[in-house]
């Protein structure tokens, strides 16, 4: 564990808390892509079955349980509690175009041809693009509530912080490198660059998040 990874994980945790806070206080999931949230459930369920047979640390297990439980809870809130506030007509990204190719990538690139490793790889690839339905929705509506942009920023910062973590680990842990996670992580962070630009130049200056028409 190093400071980059810890701050990254905490940023991930913060993003979930911000999203829950937004849904509960506005009593609405307006502006949130159900598809992206469903993809995160798929990511965690595909990646964390190792909870059952591999113990890494107390921290690791607790975080995994939190991520699985909170992502399922968010889906429940969107699907049942606040269902009328979700507009499927703007959440139209075709997720099958993400799931299929990611699964094929998982079959090709993995650290062992077995269920656990293939699903692990699949989850890494899927996580890297899971934000696309959300960004697509943002692009369509052209604006976002400020709290929603804080959620997205925390989520983007989480993956961005994993990059210095990998560099740090490479130098401190005898050249250790995880090419699948690193490649997918760089792609994932890259997807946020446009968003980050608007977030840091507008939202953090007190302006509303609006994309140029």
């Amino acid at each position: 564990m190093n400071v980059f990874r810890l701050l990254g994980d905490l940023s991930h945790l913060a993003s979930i808390i911000i999203l829950l806070h937004k849904i509960q206080t506005t009593r609405s999931c307006r502006g949130i892509s159900f598809k992206t949230q469903a993809l995160y459930v798929a990511v965690f369920v595909a990646r964390y079955p190792d909870l059952l047979f591999r113990f890494i640390s107390f921290y690791n297990s607790i975080m995994k349980l939190i991520f699985i439980a909170s992502s399922c809870y968010i889906l429940y809130l969107m699907r049942y509690r606040f269902r009328p506030t979700h507009d499927p007509s703007i959440d139209t990204f075709r997720v099958e175009y993400l799931i299929g190719p990611c699964f094929v990538l998982g079959l090709i690139f993995n650290y062992g041809f077995n269920m656990t490793e293939v699903f692990w790889s699949f989850s890494i690839f899927l996580e890297s693009v899971a934000i696309l339905p959300q960004l697509f929705m943002l692009q369509r509506t052209g604006e976002a509530e400020t709290i929603t942009t804080h959620y997205l920023a925390a989520l983007g910062i989480y993956r961005a912080l994993y990059i210095p973590n990998w560099i740090y680990r490479y130098f401190t842990e005898d050249g250790v490198v995880d090419p699948i996670a690193v490649t997918a992580g760089i792609v994932q962070t890259g997807l946020y660059l446009d968003f980050f630009y608007v977030y840091f130049t507008k939202v953090l200056q007190g302006e509303k998040f609006e994309l140029p028409a």
Partner: peptide, 10 residues
């Protein structure tokens, strides 16, 4: 079998 990479990250 031992995975090449230890999946110790989240």
């Amino acid at each position: 079998d031992n995975p090449v990479v230890q999946h110790d990250e989240l």
